[in-house]
Design a protein around this nucleic acid. Sequence first.
DNA 1: CGATAGGTTGAGTCGCATCAACCGGGGTGG
DNA 2: CCACCCCGGTTGATGCGACTCAACCTATCG
Lengths: 240, 240
Amino acid sequence: VDSFLHRKLAHFAPLTGDDRQALDARLRFVHRFGPHEDLFRHGEDPRHVNVILEGWACRYKQFEDGRRQTLALFLPGDMCDPHVFLLDRMSHSLGSLTPVTVARIPFDEISGLMDFSATLHRALLLEVLITTEVQREWTLSLGRRTSLERLAHLFCELALRLRSVGLTDRGSFDLPLTQADLADALGLSTVHVNRMLQELRATGLVEQRARRLTIYDEQGLRALAMFDPSYLHLNQIALL
Amino acid sequence: VDSFLHRKLAHFAPLTGDDRQALDARLRFVHRFGPHEDLFRHGEDPRHVNVILEGWACRYKQFEDGRRQTLALFLPGDMCDPHVFLLDRMSHSLGSLTPVTVARIPFDEISGLMDFSATLHRALLLEVLITTEVQREWTLSLGRRTSLERLAHLFCELALRLRSVGLTDRGSFDLPLTQADLADALGLSTVHVNRMLQELRATGLVEQRARRLTIYDEQGLRALAMFDPSYLHLNQIALL
DNA sequence: CGATAGGTTGAGTCGCATCAACCGGGGTGG
DNA sequence: CCACCCCGGTTGATGCGACTCAACCTATCG
């Protein structure tokens, strides 16, 4: 079976059949969550790695006064921090955005995976490195991109990441986020996200309705967002 | 010799004398840079890992139109991405802020280091994980902290990181950044940094003049910044 | 002594937040 | 079946935080 996880990791290292089997054998503990539930909370001592099999999740931090920032989006095939077990306590929370099914790999089995083959070891390392690359790009977005650019940039990133696991239909993909979810991720208010969405639609570069986003002019959207795909290190993924 | 690098890594794993020797043996290629020079630029294919021996450096990205964001600050003892060699090309640049002396470890010697001992392997992995933790906290700052909180938070972080390598004198440390450097890191304009510095000084929590920052009330500053040190995973470092 | 880098100040503007109201659709219960 | 609710989205008015532009100040250095 060719899962999202396989496709994701295959971009990082050429997995053998044995690698895939070793991987799948560790996906025994499957859990389901409804939308907007916590997979685990800040301060806990993590005992397993979450692999997103289906649905969207996020990493977030929140202040006591309610201010909340989404730090990362997790899509099908994403592993949430393969190496967290080295840290004592989580400094952030993990939450579902849509209904989500995850597999939980216990820590001792993660080490087993990394020892199993150098290829898998490398793939998991690249997973964290590239997650970090994305984190840096988000820092840049929040620091220096305007709200419209930020929104456009997120759409470019999502298009590419979803395409890399086969979840796009040409320029079009499922976008199950509410405007409030987008606001959390973009560091904006929901009201302003609403207005920027309208503005972006008005450019004609994208269409967005009924939980679906269609990109009509990917080059144009990238130019608007100053999107340079190299930070995702998915060199072989083409436009559209 | 007990270097900044030793002290830094010792927080992550208990280095043996052999580990320290293996490490030091790889610091043969020392380079010096003036202030505000590039150690290497976005798009290059990196061939070595930079270790900061002295001075401050930064990771940054910049748009064609001049907008510029500092993504990370590197202090003495910091290793700039021990695992970059897994990536094809750098998606960001590395630049000095002050005069800097760095040691460049060629990639093949990095692998040698990681194979040398499980302790070193672990220490280098923790170096990247914690760098990522810092990146996330910066994302949070840029997304949801006010400019004053951002500034205060940065000072809290710097105090703790510098203290962990022995570069503070109680609450006081060398702060060689210009207001423009701070602005790049905080996603603000230099004018606004100037005003926020004044406001922060006016609280009486800190004093700042002549390239030196003194924190008078670390608890107060942390409260203002909503600084929770757990993301740095330096559990044993005390206040002041 | 002039040049330059860093810091300071003021005025005007704009991006985005906040507050508040309202709309529309899907689900639920009476 | 209809009334209602609630969630997500939309709109307008207002205010503030931060930017821009521009001038000026100060210390350092050649």
